[in-house]
Each structure stands twice: as structure tokens, then as C-alpha cells.
């Protein structure tokens, strides 16, 4: 079985095997649908249901509210997002203290971003500080966020702190919320196409050590 020398698989042989792989267009359509739903492309998902004659995997309205929440977070409207999540299912935040903390942290970041220093301080003291005592992770996140105040808008802000103000931080929080909602709908939260690409990367890397084989032409 295990041999140290690399074997060479000719492309005709490889092509023959590609041909033998069992996958139908319907299977692939479902992978596409999975992507459209999880990533929240509601209209495209609806069209695809019709064109590809697939049964809707979820209530499309749930996609919409999920996307509204994501958009609210990406706009910086944390309060709106929290309300919407609670409208959707109050248990999501109740049962997920870390997620709730990260939303509060995001709210603090938005206060600081807009220079509402007094609100920021009050909010931190009233809402976040008590929670910071709950866990070391919360506390260090709180400290990191409060450091934003110290540096104000000076250009010498360490990147680890400045990144809190970047759009990526908003995306991160939004992604966390998205995953939590999907989980509450008992739906996969990991996009299958992403998993497929990861598997391919793994497979090619592993096989490289053992064989020479043709690559995918793009």
C-alpha cells in the first residue's frame, strides 16, 4: 500500500476516472442552492428553484430577515440588528452569551467610531463591564475595545486595535450572527462549496506527495 515513490497517473487514465465519478446535475444544483441560501442570495435562490425545478430548501422569508440583520450590522446599526434577531427567535441571544457580548462590543465600537464618547463610556460601564467579569475572554476584548478611546484617532494606533474599526470587524460580527441564526434553523452553516474547495485543497496536497496527476484546467 504505502509506497515511497510517486506514481504517475496519465491524463487519459485520470479522465477515465473523472468520467466514472457519480454525480448528477441535480446533485450539483443542490450544492448551488445551498450556497445561495446560506449566503443569503434570496432572489437568486427563488429564481433557481423555478428554473432548476428544485423544491425550496427553506422558507425564503427567513433568508430575507437573516440578510436584513446582516445588512444592519454592516451599516453599523447594532441596536436594529439585536432587535431583529430577537424578533426572529429570542432564544438565539439568550442561549449564546458570547454572541451577545460580541454584539454589545460592536455597539461600543460604533459609539467610538462616531465620537460619542460619553455614550461609549456609559454603555461600557453599565452593560459591558459587568459581563467582562464573567469571563477572561470578554474582559480582554473589552480592554482592547476601550483602548480605542485612548488612541483616539492618532495614526500610531497598533493594528490589533485599529482593526476593530475596519469593515472586517463588522463582517466578522455579522458572520457570527448569521451562523447562529442558521444553527437555530437547524440548517447547515458551513457552505458546502467552501467545504468542497477545502477538501480539494487537502486532497491535492496529500496526493502530490504520492503521485503525479493532472490538475483542473480553469
Amino acid at each position: 500500500m504505502a509506497s515511497s515513490s510517486r506514481i504517475r497517473i496519465r491524463s487519459e487514465e485520470w479522465d477515465r476516472r473523472l468520467h466514472e465519478v457519480q454525480v448528477t446535475k441535480h446533485d450539483l444544483n443542490r450544492l448551488i442552492m445551498d450556497y445561495l441560501v446560506i449566503e443569503g442570495y434570496k432572489s437568486a435562490a427563488e429564481e433557481f428553484c423555478v428554473e432548476a425545478n428544485l423544491s425550496p430548501p427553506v422558507d425564503f422569508d427567513s433568508i430575507e430577515s437573516r440578510m436584513d440583520i446582516r445588512d444592519a450590522l454592516q451599516r453599523g446599526d447594532v441596536e436594529g440588528a439585536i432587535t431583529a434577531v430577537n424578533d426572529l427567535n429570542p432564544e438565539i441571544l439568550d442561549t449564546n452569551p458570547a454572541l451577545y457580548f460580541h454584539l454589545q462590543q460592536q455597539k461600543l465600537i460604533e459609539h467610538i467610531r462616531h465620537g460619542r464618547i460619553a455614550e461609549a463610556l456609559q454603555f461600557a460601564q453599565e452593560e459591558l463591564a459587568p459581563r467582562g467579569e464573567e469571563s477572561p475572554e470578554f474582559l480582554s476584548e473589552l480592554e482592547r475595545t476601550m483602548a480605542l478611546l485612548a488612541f483616539d484617532s492618532s495614526p500610531s494606533v497598533p493594528s490589533g486595535i485599529a482593526e476593530l474599526l475596519s469593515p472586517a470587524q463588522r463582517m466578522k460580527t455579522a458572520g457570527e450572527v448569521n451562523a447562529a441564526i442558521l444553527e437555530s434553523l437547524s440548517q447547515g452553516k458551513e457552505v458546502k462549496l467552501v467545504q468542497l474547495l477545502k477538501l480539494m485543497s487537502w486532497g491535492e496536497t496529500m496526493l502530490e506527495e504520492r503521485a503525479e496527476f493532472p490538475r483542473v484546467e480553469k
Binding site: M1, S3, G203, F213
Partner: peptide, 21 residues
Amino acid sequence: TLETIYRHTAVCIQQLGVSGV
């Protein structure tokens, strides 16, 4: 390309399996 990627990945995995991975 998506279909090719799927097939290609499947063949890689199968080959890994018979190679002892």
C-alpha cells in the same frame, strides 16, 4: 468548472484511499 472540481476531488480522494491514506 464546478463539476470538474467535484469530479477531480473525488478522483483525488479515491486515489489517496488506495494509496494508503
